[in-house]
Write a protein that binds this DNA or RNA. Structure first.
Length: 860
RNA sequence: GCCCGGGUGGUGGAAUGGCAGACACGACGGUCUUAGAAGCCGUUACCGUAAGGUGUGCAGGUUCAAGUCCUGUCCCGGGCACCA
């Protein structure tokens, strides 16, 4: 049922159809496995207090257009939405106001939901999920347990930002210029006990499987760079002081071994103390202290100037016995390779800079183009070439030398080929309240061993432990049946003050008797319950980072209410992974890499049937303010979607967001441009609806519409259909505008022609389309199609325009019959007075003829 | 420093190596109107009255033909940054 307005009154039409869709359950995605499916996914938002930003509906409109078009094309479409609702702002709000973060979060969610509904997105709201809902995070915890029992989760001391004044841990983004963002107090690095996920165990697969996904090249390259695979060799250098054994280094350039003139170890290297001679002790100690005080940030920030100190010891070059002084310098990082290098200043920029600074020798061992010609070589030379000054290897190509030298040293047990990755294990805990609690209880070794007998399949091969004040605690996973482990109520959301989360102050929740078979717990203040499975323990106080919930949400949409599994295996099989995933490029590395990691673990666990979560990925571009600057409150250039919906309607906003330019481009918002698309929608209305509110009298079942209009319709169906599939919405809209302009000029229009236009427009401007579709006599939603098909025979013309060039310059056009030959075309050109003038008195040298397109006559 | 992406009218942008500027915005003129709004019809890259010439950041090159391919260079945006 349509509305009764006579003019295009979007403020009546849009709410009307939104409530129709809701009561009709138009967007429900049935688990009808007999139909082909299409799964279109948006990156779900963090429901901030500020509400929807104009950037949100950009990507969401794109997936909505695809979803609606696929629906009309007969596919079973899954197009869900949910909330990534754990996060810092809600916690900060709770600290400030003392109210539970959940209540503020729920308010924000309902505001977001209202705004999304006002945009008319075809989400199946019955599949809505919320990462802070215990029914959801129960499975986040369950997945953590899968990682845990596979030995992919461990505990380690890791440095975090600590602010003594605020007595709290800060996230990277809360630290600005070495002070806290709040109050500008000094911050320092402090080691805290952290959960870490062993993502490095999947480095090779995360890299290799990038070849199987349809992603933007730039995003693939960013992930490749982040994983940072490099092939090289680990080499053992004998130390002059033989009692100390060997020094192991990693190098990608074993071919330059003869050019090594010194060694460097990181200040944190375990052999620093042993290698430091008594006379160097003071200098080394001072240097180590200085390096330790530097943060990671400073260490990289001060990259311009290298620093180091001589240890007093020497290593022996395995290929030629040269003595190499061992230096300690912070340009070598303990976290990569072996934390020690052989320095080849002639062929490495960093070693060169250091060698010059400390006057260390530089020996060239790879021939550069300049040195090959006898000129003085420009060092450092990092390019390719033949080996020189390299004993038996002299004259070899560098690539060959790499293999030979590595093989030689391998034969002598002094080296082996290895692969290193830049990727580090993932720091997976936060000292916060508003996150998923870890389903872990810390128990004594004796109790752990007792539990191990009953729960062997839940435990990692190596127990996870930590030691505090001489006592070692063992990580006991909660039984799966006892999940979720919910967040307890707390008195205060303020951090504990010791660097632990506020949960550390909830003694009743923290200190417990736990039944290791059932996971039941009672506060330790109460008497121990009867039974051998009851043991004493304390809960983990860290919570999971925001990434956790977003790592697997695309799976939960498939079966959001399942209480027995992440999702039903049959439905995981049917819906599979998203066919299209749209979101910002700011998640190119972390979110997408973490989610791929979890997905692969779930694949290995047999939970999901495919090894990659996101087949096709697309990044929408950023919408800038009117001034071409990034939108921000402080600049005052923020566009509020609510205001546009009120002034022009949701359909106009959707259409304009897509018309602004290519989806992937960064583009400025132009408030005047929106009038253009609004006028277009009004024009479509007027062409369909007469002044009296009835169907425009020019539309009729058997109208004699111009042949030109029919042909253009089929061209438009073709172009719009193809452009939607390729996510080229701006050109699709422009084609519909061209069609509407032609439609307007026609005095008679077939009803089917008008209906086809409405169907093509429906994914873009669904409210208007539903209204017109109904008024032209249809009962069911326009969403149910079927999608118009173009007739290829209608596209062929009998006459076509041929562009004529003389010497490559445009000199005229000819209308010629299809199938015109080159000779006929040249003859026609000669008969055309304008073109003939340029040919008069000239000799034709060459003729280029592209049938149906161009005739280029080259003269003289 | 390294790796990407991009520079096209007054503006957003369009263009399988084949008419540069589609489609819009804005501007100007016309029509309708008592007047306006809306709608409709024109014009709108630059120089030139015109014929014509010149034009896709800049300089070259390949080609019958280059916004598109190649080389160099400048500018803007993004990512990474002592990873041996």
């Amino acid at each position: 049922m349509a509305t009764h307005c006579k003019e295009y009154e979007f403020s009546q039409i849009e709410p009307h159809w939104q409530s129709f869709w809701e009561s009709d359950h138009t967007f429900r995605a049935p688990n009808d496995t007999s139909k082909p499916k299409f799964y279109a996914l948006d990156m779900f938002p963090y429901p901030s207090g500020a509400g929807l930003h104009i950037g949100h509906p950009e990507g969401y409109t794109a997936t909505d257009i695809i979803s609606r078009a696929k629906h009309a094309q007969g596919l079973n479409v899954l197009h869900p939405m949910g909330w990534d609702a754990f996060g810092l702002p809600a916690e900060q709000h709770a600290v400030k106001t003392g109210t539970h973060p959940a209540s503020n979060t729920q308010n924000n969610i309902s505001n977001f939901k209202r705004q999304l509904k006002a945009l008319g997105f075809s989400y199946d709201w019955e599949r809505e999920i919320d990462t802070t809902d215990p029914r959801y995070y129960r499975w986040t915890q369950w997945i953590f347990l899968q990682l845990f029992k596979r030995g992919l989760a461990y505990v380690d001391e890791r440095p975090v930002w600590w602010c003594p004044e605020l007595r709290t841990v800060l996230a990277n983004e809360e630290v600005v210029d070495g002070t806290s963002e709040v109050g500008h107090y000094p911050v320092e690095r402090r080691n805290l006990r952290q959960w870490v996920l062993r993502i490095t165990a999947y480095a090779e697969r995360l890299l290799a499987d990038l070849k199987d996904v349809d992603w933007p090249d730039s995003t693939k390259r960013m992930q490749e760079a982040w994983i940072g695979r490099s092939e090289g060799a680990e080499l053992l250098f004998e130390l002059e002081n033989k009692s100390l054994g060997d020094l192991k280094v990693f190098t990608t350039r074993p071919d330059t071994l003869f050019g090594a003139t010194y060694m460097v170890i990181a200040p944190e290297h375990p052999m620093v103390a042993a290698l430091t001679t008594p006379e160097q002790r003071d200098a080394v100690e001072a240097y180590r202290k200085k390096a330790a005080a530097k943060s990671d940030l400073e260490r990289t920030d001060l990259a311009k100037e290298k620093s180091g100190v001589f240890s007093g010891s020497y290593a022996i070059n395995p290929v030629n016995g040269t003595r190499l002084p061992i230096w300690i310098a912070d340009y070598v990082l303990m976290g990569y390779g072996t934390g020690a290098i052989m320095a080849v200043p002639a062929h490495d920029d960093r070693d060169y800079e250091f060698a010059v600074q400390y006057q260390l020798p530089i020996i060239q061992v790879i021939e550069s183009p300049a040195s090959a010609e006898g000129a003085s070589p420009k060092l450092p030379y990092t390019g390719e070439g033949k080996l020189i000054h390299s004993g038996p290897f002299t004259g070899l190509d560098w690539r060959e030398a790499k293999k030979r030298i590595t093989a030689d040293l391998t034969a002598q047990s002094r080296g082996k080929a290895t692969v290193n990755y830049k990727l580090r294990d993932w720091l997976f805990s936060r000292q916060r309240y508003w996150g998923e609690p870890f389903p872990i209880v810390w128990v004594s070794e004796a109790d752990y061993l007792k539990a191990l007998v009953a729960r062997k399949s839940d435990m990692p091969e190596q127990p996870v432990t930590y030691t505090n004040q001489g006592v070692t605690h063992f990580a006991l996973p909660l039984p799966e049946v006892s999940l979720p482990l919910t967040l307890p109520d707390v008195q205060s959301y303020l951090p504990s003050g010791t660097g632990e989360s506020p949960l550390a102050n909830v003694t009743e929740w923290l200190q417990i008797w736990i039944n290791f078979e059932t996971g039941q717990a009672v506060p330790a203040s109460q008497p121990k319950p009867e039974g051998a499975a009851w043991i004493r323990g304390h809960r983990e106080t860290n919570t999971m980072p925001q990434w956790a919930g977003s790592c697997w949400y695309y799976l939960r949409f498939i079966d959001p209410k399942n209480e027995r599994a992440v999702a039903d295996p049959k439905l995981l099989q049917y819906w599979g992974v998203p066919d299209l995933y749209v979101g910002g490029a700011e998640h190119a590395v972390l979110h997408l890499l973490y989610a791929r990691f979890w997905h692969k673990v779930l694949f290995d666990a047999g939970v999901v049937p495919q090894s990659e979560p996101f087949k096709k990925l697309f990044h929408q571009g950023i919408i800038l303010g009117e001034d071409g600057e990034k939108m921000s409150k402080s600049r005052g250039n923020v566009v509020n979607p609510d205001a546009i919906i009120a002034s022009h309607g949701a359909d106009t906003l959707r259409l304009y967001l897509m018309f602004l330019g290519p989806l992937e481009a960064m583009k400025p918002w132009n408030p005047r441009g929106i009038e253009g698309v609004h006028r277009f929608l009004q024009k479509v209305w007027r062409e369909c609806i007469g002044e009296d509110g009835g169907v425009n009298p020019k539309i009729s079942e058997n109208a004699q519409e111009p042949a030109e209009l029919t042909k253009l319709l089929h061209e438009t169906i073709k172009k719009v259909t193809e452009d939607i599939d390729a996510l080229r919405f701006n050109t699709a809209i422009s084609q519909m505008m061209i069609f509407a302009n032609t439609l307007q000029k026609a005095s008679a229009v077939k009803r089917t022609t008008a209906l086809a236009l409405i169907q093509l427009l429906a994914p873009f401007a669904p409210h208007l389309a539903e209204e017109l579709w109904a008024r032209l006599g249809n009962q069911a939603s326009v969403l149910f199609g079927p999608w118009p098909k173009y007739d290829a025979s209608k596209l062929v013309a009998t006459e076509i325009k041929l562009v004529v060039q003389v010497n490559g310059k445009h000199r005229g056009e000819l209308m010629v019959a299809v199938g015109t030959t080159q000779d006929q075309a040249v003859a026609a050109a000669n008969e055309n007075a304008k073109i003939a003038a340029f040919l008069a008195g000239k000799t034709v040298k060459r003729v280029v003829f592209v049938p149906g397109k161009i005739l280029n006559i080259v003269v003289e």
